[in-house]
């Protein structure tokens, strides 16, 4: 009988794994045992993580938008006034044949004047003019490879050298400004994320510190019967891990809800601008970062608290 039970003894590693699993579950149970106060701590952690996550997603969206606009950048080629429509058409075809150009569109003097009359409200005044003062304009859309700011600028300078061209303009600068602004915001969000991450670290650290104080006598007794520091630390580390993990999951849910609330109005606005822009959800990387980063923050916070406070407890 006795030898049988000895044969059934699980080996060292499975005991170790089981003990860890047991500790993890016990720590989770302890956390759920006190839903009100621990829930509040979790909510604070979740908000601290959700805030930069949501902001990041929004700004990332704006950045995506400016990329899209940059791709659609166009060059306006103002021809000299002595170029007539047939010549202009020929130039447009010549430019369209260039490798880096996707297509061209000619806006003739007459069309431009019509449009100007319509839109400016100076219709009657313009009728008084003998000649049409507007030039023929060719609007050039670079192909995809030449849509980058650098390539588009190169194309611009190439087109400027054409004899018939009076001036050429790249409608890109404001896109670049927008991009610079979004870059600034992204950096701001990263700084905010770092600060709030440190906040999470301290929140978990403080929670674990209180827990250690609360279980002071238990720790003392465990030390008396020969528990190693590692053994005593373990449940607290798991607790920190759970705080981080549950807080991170709650943060992801919060972010998704926030983005969902925003997606309606965003679609409405983009509809008004004839754009089919829709809010992008959390990217895979951002999701993984939050999902795996938050438990690490929790673990770090717990470690921070334990290093200082466990040593101070000695049995007497």
């Amino acid at each position: 009988m006795k030898s049988k039970t000895r044969n059934e003894k699980p080996n060292f590693i499975s005991i170790w794994a089981m003990r860890h699993a047991q500790t993890a579950v016990t720590a989770l149970g302890r956390l759920l045992l006190n839903p009100l106060s621990n829930g509040m701590t979790l909510a604070v952690i979740a908000i601290a993580i959700a805030l930069p996550t949501t902001l990041y997603v929004m700004i990332d969206n704006v950045r995506g938008l400016s990329d899209e606009w940059q791709g659609a950048s166009s060059i306006s080629l103002f021809l000299k006034t002595d170029i007539d429509e047939t010549q202009a058409r020929a130039i447009a075809q010549r430019v369209a044949a260039l490798d880096s150009v996707a297509n061209t569109q000619l806006i003739t003097k007459a069309q431009a004047l019509e449009e100007f009359k319509e839109r400016s409200g100076f219709g009657a005044a313009l009728d008084l003019l003998k000649d049409n003062p507007l030039p023929n304009v060719i609007v050039i859309t670079p192909n995809e490879a030449s849509s980058t700011p650098m390539a588009a600028k190169q194309l611009l300078s190439q087109l400027k050298t054409l004899r018939e061209v009076d001036s050429a303009q790249l409608d890109l600068e404001w896109v670049q400004r927008l991009e610079a602004i979004t870059d600034l915001f992204i950096r701001g969000v990263l700084v905010l994320a770092a600060l709030l991450g440190a906040g999470v670290l301290l929140i978990v650290g403080n929670t674990i510190r209180l827990e250690v104080q609360h279980r002071h006598s238990e720790i003392e007794i465990m030390k008396l019967v020969g528990a190693t520091d590692r053994f005593i630390r373990r449940p607290f580390l798991y607790e920190g891990l759970w705080y981080g993990l549950l807080g991170g999951i709650a943060a992801l849910i919060m972010s998704i809800i926030a983005l969902w609330l925003l997606s309606g109005p965003v679609e409405q606005i983009s509809g008004l601008y004839n754009s089919n822009f829709a809010l992008d959800w959390l990217s895979g990387e951002a999701f993984l970062l939050v999902f795996f980063g938050s438990p690490l923050l929790g673990l770090g916070g717990a470690l921070l608290a334990l290093i200082r406070h466990l040593r101070m407890i000695q049995p007497d």
Binding site: K9, I15, W16, V225, G226
Partner: peptide, 16 residues
């Protein structure tokens, strides 16, 4: 059981 748990004994051994 505490001293045995702390020392990492197996559940069977602890019970016994």
């Amino acid at each position: 059981a505490l001293p045995l748990v702390v020392a990492g004994a197996s559940p069977n051994e602890i019970k016994r």
